[in-house]
Design a protein around this nucleic acid. Structure first.
Length: 518
RNA sequence: GGCGCUAUGGUGUAAUUGGUUAACACGCUGCCCUCUCAAGGCAGAGAGUACGGGUUCGAUCCCCGUUAGCGCUACCA
């Protein structure tokens, strides 16, 4: 049977990085095995689900480039009637029962505490979760109370003796005694199907063969297996992914960590989808081992020097090639960030990977991305697509070497595309104001630059060095001053290339203008 | 409270069926290169594998316990 996997987010917020990785791994597995990748929006919680959130999830998947799902998107809420019917059928068959206990009102704030306290109280009182008074109500009486209009929830009747077992592709053999599983609610008293029921029904309906999801569902799996069994359906294979945690091993949550966990943050900050996927793939995945395994497969592992193995930088197709559920490991990964540190606002390695992509990716792939960034920043000019096409490509090649994100092209790189750039205060002080003679030297240099013929990297260098000799100053003084004059900054590419890219006229003008800052 | 999962430098990961001076990448430090900053090259700091037992000639690896983090324990998903 061919593999069918699904990504099933609940639309209760933006797509966060943990969910994004789950989506990616599902996608990877489908591609790798020639299977199908389906998408299901789990919007059964009417209160919290929003269309806005669904849109942002779809957008996130599109951005990552894994939005080529097979078949139509399934909205779980559309199947509610079917799920309800399944639950009711289970009641008919005696595998579930009506619970007429009035619904307990519970504050939303500290559910976890409530649960713990209730469990503690129950264990003190010696009550088991199998002691529901309605569990063994005769079907006649149950039916009568239903007919009388009494509200009821539907619970799965979990047997007293036995255990569920399954083999998780990542976590290995799992087993759980029935005594650890409560008679879980399938249907709320308002008739609404609950998560565990819906998931199972839909996965059956969609023909899902492999359920790949976060480790937070590992223990839920036992309950779901019970539902599969009650429904008389075969189990899919399960693979649970280790969680992604915040620094310090804390839980990563939308609530406490905010935008930092949202995929859109990274899109908006100028990260490349391919780089982001690459980073995500590294989280919880034994890449080094994969490379080693790959060289083992060729039969000469020892002969392959470490630095000739595939690095951690992998394209989506390379990741796909190396991907396997077995290589995923079990311990949670920490995603680093520091809201108080602008340089470390997100994970170092993510930044490094992104920079690596920006400076090494094929030019023709980078150019459209830079174009989009410049358009967004109002810096794009039509001639970059026409007469100045080649110039644009050269400019990007020149500056991309030291950029980290796409944003840098419109930020630090602004001076290459516009005349109205800002001067860095420290750069002005250090490279211009420190030496008063520059007030005269810069305009004089401007004149020489203007007369340089032909105007190339080499001739500009010759001109500047000759002028420095004549003026009796170090070339470095003029070079650094020129860098700040032309780009507003103290750092940047080799200065003579900058002259060449900025051009004769603009270079001269900026040198003269800069003299006014001294 | 019960049950479950996990535990290798700051972070992501290696360590072939138990035998390594515990490896690689990011980050960090220094040097080289140099017009600056990157990149690149070189060198270095940083873990004796959470802790405590056990099995074994030998344990990061197998077993037990403890601790910590996380998950599940909802008429949330």
């Amino acid at each position: 049977m061919s593999i069918r996997v699904r990504f099933a987010p609940s639309p209760t917020g933006y797509l966060h990085i943990g969910a994004a990785r789950t989506a990616l791994f599902n996608w990877l597995y489908a591609r790798k095995t020639g299977g199908e990748f389906l998408l299901r929006i789990e919007d059964t919680d009417l209160q919290r689900s929003t269309e806005e959130s669904t849109r942002s999830i779809l957008e996130g998947l599109r951005w990552l480039g894994i939005d080529d799902y097979d078949g139509d998107i399934v909205f779980q809420s559309a199947n509610a009637a079917k799920h309800r019917a399944d639950a009711l059928r289970l009641v008919e068959e005696g595998k579930a029962y009506r619970d007429f206990t009035p619904k307990a009102e519970r504050g939303d704030t500290n559910v976890k505490q409530d649960i713990a306290e209730r469990a503690r109280a129950a264990s003190h009182a010696g009550t088991s979760h199998r002691s529901n008074p309605f569990r063994d109500l005769s079907s006649g009486e149950s039916e009568a109370r239903r007919a009388a209009g009494e509200p009821f929830a539907v619970r799965l009747k979990v047997a007293h003796e036995g255990r569920t077992t399954f083999e998780d592709a990542v976590y290995g053999a799992q087993e759980r005694d029935y005594s650890e599983i409560e008679d879980l609610v399938l249907l709320r008293s308002d008739g609404h199907p609950l998560y565990n029921l819906s998931v199972v029904c839909d996965d059956i309906e969609m023909g899902i063969t492999d359920v790949i999801r976060g480790q937070d569902h590992l223990t839920n799996t036992h309950k779901q297996i019970l539902i599969y069994e009650a429904l008389g359906k075969p189990l899919p294979r399960f693979a649970h992914l280790p969680l992604i945690l915040a620094p310090g091993g804390k839980k990563l949550s939308k609530r406490t960590h905010g935008e930092i966990v949202s995929l859109t943050t990274y899109r908006d900050a100028g990260f490349l989808p391919a780089a982001f996927c690459n980073f995500l793939a590294l989280l919880g995945w034994a890449t080094t081992g994969v490379q080693f395994a790959a060289s083992v497969a060729t039969g000469d592992a020892a002969a392959v020097p470490v630095d000739e193995r595939i690095g951690e930088i992998m394209s989506l197709s390379e990741i796909e090639e190396n991907f396997s559920l077995e290589r995923i490991h079990r311990n949670p990964a920490i995603f680093n960030f520091d809201a108080n540190n602008p340089k470390r606002w997100t994970d170092d390695k993510l930044i490094w990977i992104n920079a690596e992509y920006i400076r090494t990716m094929p030019r023709e792939e980078l150019l459209p991305l830079v174009r989009a960034e410049l358009v967004a920043a109002g810096l794009w000019r039509e001639e970059y697509d026409g007469d100045r096409r080649e110039w644009f490509a050269r400019a990007v090649d020149l500056i991309r070497e030291r950029f980290y994100t796409l944003k840098d092209f419109s930020g630090q790189g602004r001076a290459y595309f516009a005349d109205d750039f800002e001067f860095d205060g420290a750069a002005v002080k250090k490279n211009l104001q420190k030496e008063p003679r520059l007030k005269e030297l810069l305009p004089a240099l401007a004149e020489r630059i203007e007369q340089t013929e032909p105007f190339t990297t080499e001739t500009c260098e010759a001109t500047l060095r000759a002028f420095a000799d004549e003026a009796g100053v170090k070339a470095g003084l003029l070079i650094n001053a020129a860098r700040t004059a032309l780009s507003g900054q103290s750092v940047g590419p080799s200065m003579f290339e900058v002259f060449d890219i900025i051009g004769r006229e603009a270079s001269a003008r900026r040198l003269r203008d800069a003299a006014r800052l001294i």
